[in-house]
Design a protein around this nucleic acid. Structure first.
Length: 648
RNA sequence: GCGCCUGUAGCUCAGGUGGAUAGAGCGGCAGCCUUCUAAGCUGCGGGUCAGGGGUUCGAGUCCCUUCAGGCGCGCCA
């Protein structure tokens, strides 16, 4: 809402600057004064004009301020500091416009074309861990923000069902446990957790005798060839683990539109097609000499020497990077091949979940691929292969498409020494963090973390509200756990390594998801009580609209309330910023926290009590403020994927 | 060696497009519950924004450089 207001004011500022100084300004930048007493918005145009006009910015500010006071939306304007123009808004008009915008939300203008976000993409061979949660929460939150801002988004989860990690588990079943497909299928309980342990044993198994590595490559070849017992076992493992991952992510309300199976990329010969095009264009060539002799390589054109990346090995097999180039080309609509699709048994939030297939597809499948922009949420360790993929796309003459394909890189999650010790890992005194290791089975399983959070939240809920129905307490505990976890994953910027500490992650006080949830619960509860007393929120809001709000939004309470409203008004701006900055929702999470903080601070003062307001006008005013807060916070919580319990 | 990332309060971290006195949470200290649910609020203390140089009216933010730490540079993914 503040964006609209700013563009109206900016329009007038440009006009006035042209009249007074004869200068055409392209953009007018707004800032927020450090303290509310100084003003609601600040202009820095006098600083910019000072250069071209060769005049003191203070004088320019004074001239400009004199003309701004009579504009619509503006109550008055002052000069301050070395040349700021501080604008005080017409608070009544501001509050009413803000409220109207939240009651009748204009959905953001639809942008053209589809955006694809790929996230999660966990190897389907063992349980998801906290690092995967960071990926999924980052990706899912970005998707929510994009959709909110008018983008059409397709969410894809890439399943590497023919890779070495699945092969390792297959080796484990065949050569360590000596289980048949039927016996594996009969394993009950949490299959992904079973494989988590088995995977660690396979690591030991290889380490004991390096010759056993051959078993991995044997399994891999059998899987790629297909139509044999090993391949069927691999398919069973991958499919079953994917279901586990989907179930884990669903606990956090993370969903996908399409599962892309690597086996389908192979069977539908996407790579052969991409390979042919890459050869035609000369992007790939067959190296005749040197250490890469016999390989098909792609030049990275950096430094000019030894920068070639092998795409096809000398034994003729294609690397993962090669397959990813094919997949990326398909995403961008640059590969003249398509998958076939069938409905998956699981539903997604908006409707059907689809999966690729090389068999018969459903006739009514929607279109996928052909994206205008692609975001790949992948850990920062894969920056190099991601650059290779982009270079491959660019080498086919699609420079613009390569640019619209972005790597949303995020740092890893490691364990604090305390948490690593609690998991039974031996930590020496000097260490400040411990890397997770799939090979050693070291790490925190996503489900275990969520379970611990729910249990901790359940204790709190039980202690506060023992009389409440047990199922209601459980669902509140679950929502609090999810809110805490999602906020925790967002509060650090992507480039920061998270040193995961169980106690810190389990904290529900301070800058956390539950803090935000509590603010909304408190606010909603006021309305519940108000209605229970026989009052009507709707009537009170109608009454508020007719009030002299300028008066109510002044003074000690008014300033506090207005500060809250100013923060609320910036929400869409911050959401868009999260997109423009390249997909970092940290700002938006922080923003939600700031609004919650402003509300808590306002709410806490007994003299601001809504239910015990001294008269109906004051009550009506407070209802308006709280209503604006609740409506905006509900939107923000949804964007962050933070559920709101009925009671805390 | 080359490339990328990080360095801000005791700890963990925020700090669009350069702007006013650099913020939050945790921890510490001192207060606030016959309550619109204290998972909350108020106050206090806490800073060479790693060091140095430069650009600018103005730099935590941009440029150069040094230092420290991490990651990448596979016919793994």
């Amino acid at each position: 809402m503040i964006i609209d207001l700013q563009s109206r004011v900016a329009h007038h500022v440009r006009r006035i600057v042209a009249e007074m100084f004869g200068v055409q300004m392209e953009a007018v930048a707004f800032q927020y004064p450090p303290r509310l007493e100084l003003g609601d918005l600040a202009l820095t145009v006098p600083f910019e004009l000072a250069k071209t006009l060769r005049r003191n910015p203070r004088e320019i500010a004074r001239d400009l301020a004199g003309r701004l006071g009579s504009l619509p939306d503006v109550a008055r304007a002052e000069t301050a500091g070395g040349g700021y123009v501080n604008i005080f808004l017409d608070r009544r008009a501001f509050a009413l416009e803000l409220h109207r915008g939240l009651i009748e939300p204009r959905s953001a203008a639809l942008t053209n074309g589809r955006v694809i976000v790929e996230h999660t993409s966990i190897n389907p061979n063992k349980a998801a861990h906290i690092g995967h949660l960071r990926n999924a929460v980052l990706g899912d939150t970005f998707v929510r923000v994009l959709r909110h801002r008018g983008y059409t988004v397709g969410v894809q989860n890439y399943i590497d069902d023919t890779g070495v990690q699945v092969a390792d588990i297959v080796v484990g079943f065949i050569h360590i446990e000596r289980k048949s497909l039927d016996e594996v299928a009969a394993i009950s309980g949490r299959f992904d957790h079973y494989c988590w342990d088995l995977y660690a044993r396979v690591g030991d198994f290889y380490a004991q005798d390096l010759a056993r590595r051959e078993l991995q490559s044997e399994a891999l070849h059998a899987i790629e060839a297909g139509d044999n017992e090993t391949a069927r076992l691999a398919a069973h493992v991958a499919a079953r683990i994917v279901e586990c991952h989907l179930a884990t992510m669903a606990r956090l309300d993370v969903h996908y539109d399409l599962l892309v199976l690597e086996s389908d990329i192979l069977r539908l010969r996407f790579w052969e097609r991409a390979f042919a095009r890459l050869k035609e264009s000369g992007a790939l060539w067959h190296e005749q000499e040197g250490k890469n002799a016999g390989c098909w390589v792609l030049s990275m054109e950096e430094g000019g020497h030894d920068e070639d990346k092998i795409i096809v090995r000398s034994n003729g097999t294609v690397t993962y990077t090669g397959k990813d180039i094919a997949y990326q080309l398909w995403k961008l609509g640059l590969l003249d091949r398509d998958f076939r699709y069938r409905r998956h048994a699981r539903k997604t939030r908006g409707g059907d979940l689809w999966t690729t297939t090389s068999g018969e597809g459903d006739a009514d499948a929607p279109a996928f691929g052909h994206a205008r922009a692609v975001y790949n949420v992948i850990d920062v360790g894969q920056s190099y292969p991601q650059r290779v993929v982009k270079a491959g796309v660019a080498a086919l003459g699609h420079a613009a498409a390569a640019l619209s394909s972005r790597h949303l890189a995020y740092e890893k999650v490691v364990l604090s020494p305390a948490t690593a010790r609690a998991l039974g890992y031996d930590v020496s005194d000097g260490e400040t963090s411990v890397k997770v290791s799939g090979r050693k089975g070291l790490g925190v399983k996503a489900d275990d973390l969520i379970d611990a959070l729910v249990a901790k939240a359940r204790e709190e809920v039980d202690a506060r509200d023992p009389a409440r129905d047990s199922r209601a307490r459980e669902s509140a505990a679950t929502e609090i756990a999810v809110g805490a976890l999602r906020y925790f994953m967002l509060k650090f910027s992507r480039a920061k390594i998270i040193v995961f500490d169980m106690d810190e992650a389990l904290a529900f006080v301070g800058e956390t998801g539950p803090y935000i949830q509590n603010a909304i619960v408190r606010a909603r509860n006021i309305f519940v009580k108000l209605e229970a007393q026989g009052a009507s929120v709707e009537d009170l809001i109608a009454r508020a609209r007719a009030l002299d709000l300028e008066r109510f939004l002044a003074g000690e309470e008014g300033d506090l309330a207005f500060a809250l409203l100013m923060l609320v008004a910036r929400s869409e701006d911050v959401a868009q910023q999260a997109i423009d900055s390249g997909g970092d929702a940290t700002l938006l999470a922080k923003h939600a926290f700031l609004i919650a903080q402003a509300f808590h601070s306002y709410y806490q003062k007994p003299q601001h009590s809504l239910l015990r307001a001294e008269n109906d006008d004051v009550r009506a005013f407070r209802v308006l403020v709280v209503d604006i807060f609740v409506r905006q916070m509900t939107i923000l919580a949804d964007l962050l994927g933070i559920p709101v319990p009925e009671r805390m």
